[in-house]
Simulated scan of single mutants.
Amino acid sequence: MSKKVILAYSGGLDTSVIVRWLAEKGYEVITYTADVGQGEELEEIPQKAKASGAVEAIVEDLREEFAREYCLPTLRALALYEGKYPLTASLSRPLIAKKLVEYAQKFGADFVAHGSTGKGNDQVRFELSVWALNPDLEVLAPVREWEFRSREEEVEYALRFNIPVKATKEKPYSIDKNLWGISIECGPLEDPWTEPPEDAFEWTVSPEKAPEEAEYVEISFKEGTPVAINGKEYPKLYELILDLNKIAGRHGVGRIDMVENRLVGIKSREVYEAPAATLLYEAYRDLLSLTLDRFTFHYFLSHIPYEYAKLVYEGLWFSPLREALDGFTERIARFVDGTVRLKLYKGRAWVVGRKSERSLYVEDLATYSEKDAFDHKAGAQFTKVFGLPLKILGRIRRR
């Protein structure tokens, strides 16, 4: 069996230490780094990986693929895990796993590896995705096996071997970034009573320090895809998302602080920044309410967001169920044309206007002015029929 291993490499503390640790175990380590819009200087990654002990380092730009094939379907499902988390880190794992499988085949490797812990969700996402695509590959997870008991010990190991890492004992955050958002863990955040320190945030300003004047932003959609901001069209979806991150971030919009139920059964305090996703979710949901009939809209809200979020969170991206749900949301997305206007102010974002050529809003029926065309007499008959079950129930109860 070949001892080649393709490692999902972020350049952070864990994966940098993993390179050296695997090399000491006799593995030939090839690192794979996906540019999914984390906004870091990835040109330094190959040198950094090789300095840690890698024999080869691959960096690949996946920003548009990530935006269109992973972020967009999740947006169309309005999937938020436990009603809050827009699945930022969760979404990049199946894409990275797919690439690990491809490069394992290319280089003749029998192993792939990741940096997830034994109590993390990512171990499930990586491994289920890899096995769904190639069940013969063996997956290594050094963090589940090695001797280090804390991030502080990892920092000492890195310093001993001159491995360049950003994490320090003074700022020991574990950070995962992509264009859909940032996940922040560890350090003072492990106490759910402690307010997140400002140095934990990167993309959003403190709401107290946000501009004193509100900003309005208009997001336009074409068949369920965001295509323009304030009239400016974006041929590449990832560029639209990056610009929305900047716009919302300067108003402190997109901070999420929650106690989350991890897949392995424990509760974990998680802090996220998702400025663009926050705006897009608000806009997409509002446009759905304008363009979908009541029956479809209610079915969608009752079934799709929860189930889709659960699938993504639990590492089941490559399941037939997720593909089937995509078929439903893609069909619905055909109706999502139009523009939504949002107001951003001091950490909040809310919809203040919407328009669409597919709008089902009819002013003559909704108005209370002299233009009112609604048949009020029909309303009286409607309530009699609709309320009949309760009327009968009331009679029985009175007896």
Rank of each mutant, 00 (worst) to 15 (best):
V227P: 06
N121E: 08
K25P: 03
E239Y: 01
S16P: 01
L288R: 06
Y216M: 10
S183N: 15
P207L: 05
E208H: 11
L128H: 06
N178E: 09
Y313H: 15
V143E: 14
F111R: 04
K25C: 05
R395I: 10
G53D: 04
L240D: 00
I332S: 03
E370T: 11
E370S: 12
R334Y: 10
E153L: 10
E270H: 10
L13E: 05
E282L: 15
S16T: 13
K310E: 14
R63T: 06
V385G: 04
E145W: 07
I247Q: 01
A54G: 00
A324E: 13
H114N: 13
S268G: 09
E24N: 09
E202G: 08
V385I: 14
D110P: 00
E102V: 09
P196D: 05
V29Q: 05
A214G: 03
P135Q: 07
R398W: 01
A57L: 09
E145A: 09
R331T: 13
T33P: 02
S220L: 07
E233A: 09
V205I: 12
G353H: 10
R125C: 11
Q123R: 13
L7T: 03
E208D: 15
E218N: 11
A167P: 00
I175T: 05
G252Y: 02
E307T: 12
I6D: 06
E138T: 13
N245E: 07
G12Y: 03
R397M: 11
F386R: 15
A248T: 04
E213I: 08
P188W: 07
L91R: 04
T367P: 03
A89N: 08
E314A: 08
I229F: 08
L7H: 02
N162Q: 12
V55E: 12
S116E: 14
V139Q: 07
R255E: 03
L263N: 13
S92Q: 14
L72N: 02
V385K: 13
P46W: 11
G187A: 15
T117A: 12
L133H: 02
S268E: 15
A54M: 00
E153V: 10
F107K: 15
V55Y: 01
A132K: 12
I241G: 06
P226E: 07
P188D: 04
S206Y: 09
E307M: 09
D122S: 11
S16L: 05
H303L: 14
G12A: 10
P164N: 12
D122K: 02
A324M: 10
T383I: 14
D286N: 15
E154Y: 04
E212I: 09
M258E: 13
R334T: 13
L242P: 00
G37N: 06
C186N: 14
Y173S: 08
S183E: 10
P94Q: 08
F318A: 06
G394D: 13
E154G: 10
Y103C: 01
Y281A: 04
Q47Y: 08
R160P: 02
V264C: 09
F382C: 02
S116P: 01
N245S: 08
L62T: 00
L365W: 07
S220F: 08
R399K: 14
G254T: 06
K209R: 13
S10E: 04
S116C: 04
S220R: 07
A67G: 07
P86N: 03
Y313A: 11
R125W: 00
R397K: 14
L280R: 02
Y361P: 02
F297G: 01
E330L: 12
K371A: 11
E270I: 15
A210V: 05
A349Q: 04
Y284W: 04
F295W: 07
F126S: 02
L42N: 04
L316E: 12
